[in-house]
């Protein structure tokens, strides 16, 4: 464990909690892409299947349980509890455009052709594109509430910190996970234009982020 990965995990947890609290307190999921949240729940489910078979550390196990619980709670709030506030016509990204290439690639590029390893690879590739429906919704509606942008900021920052973690681990322990690194870089690149908008618009106290 290193400070970059720990900071990344904290940012990830903060992002998930920000979104969950926003939906719970505003009792609404307007402006939130339910599809992205479903994809994140799938990411955690397919990545943490070794929850009961591989023990890394108490921290690792606890965080996996927390991420699974919070992501399913978020999906529950969107599609069950506050479903009447869910505007599905704005959440119109075609998930098959993401799932088909990601499934295909995880069968082609993986460390081992075993169910667990293919599912882990699938979760890594899926995570890199899971935010697409949310970013697509924002470009479609032309705006995002500031809370949603803070959520996206921490979510983007988490994987950027993981890149620093991979650089650190490469130089200190020779660790290099090519699938995770390539996918993590692609994932972070998707956030770059959002980061620019976030810094220039939201942090200047404009409240809402309105796209040009």
């Amino acid at each position: 464990m290193n400070i970059f990965r720990l900071a990344g995990d904290v940012c990830h947890l903060v992002a998930i909690i920000i979104l969950l609290l926003k939906i719970w307190r505003s009792r609404s999921c307007a402006g939130i892409s339910g599809k992205s949240q479903v994809l994140f729940a799938i990411v955690f489910t397919t990545r943490y299947l070794d929850l009961f078979t591989v023990f890394i550390s108490p921290y690792n196990t606890i965080m996996k349980v927390v991420f699974l619980a919070l992501s399913y709670a978020t999906v529950y709030l969107i599609y069950m509890r506050f479903r009447n506030t869910f505007n599905s016509e704005n959440d119109s990204f075609r998930l098959e455009f993401l799932l088909v290439p990601v499934i295909g690639l995880s069968f082609l590029e993986n460390y081992a052709f075993t169910p667990l390893e293919i599912l882990w690879t699938f979760s890594i590739f899926l995570e890199s594109v899971a935010i697409m429906p949310q970013l697509f919704m924002i470009t479609k509606t032309g705006e995002a509430e500031s809370i949603t942008t803070h959520y996206l900021f921490f979510l983007g920052l988490y994987r950027a910190l993981y890149i620093a973690n991979w650089v650190w681990r490469y130089h200190t322990e020779g660790f290099f996970d090519q699938i995770a690194v390539v996918s993590g870089v692609v994932q972070t690149i998707f956030y770059i234009d959002f980061f620019y908008l976030y810094v220039t618009k939201v942090l200047r106290g404009r409240g809402k982020m309105t796209l040009p």
Partner: peptide
């Protein structure tokens, strides 16, 4: 690509 023995990251 080096094959990580096990996935110790979240």
């Amino acid at each position: 690509s080096m094959e990580p023995l096990r996935h110790d990251e979240l």
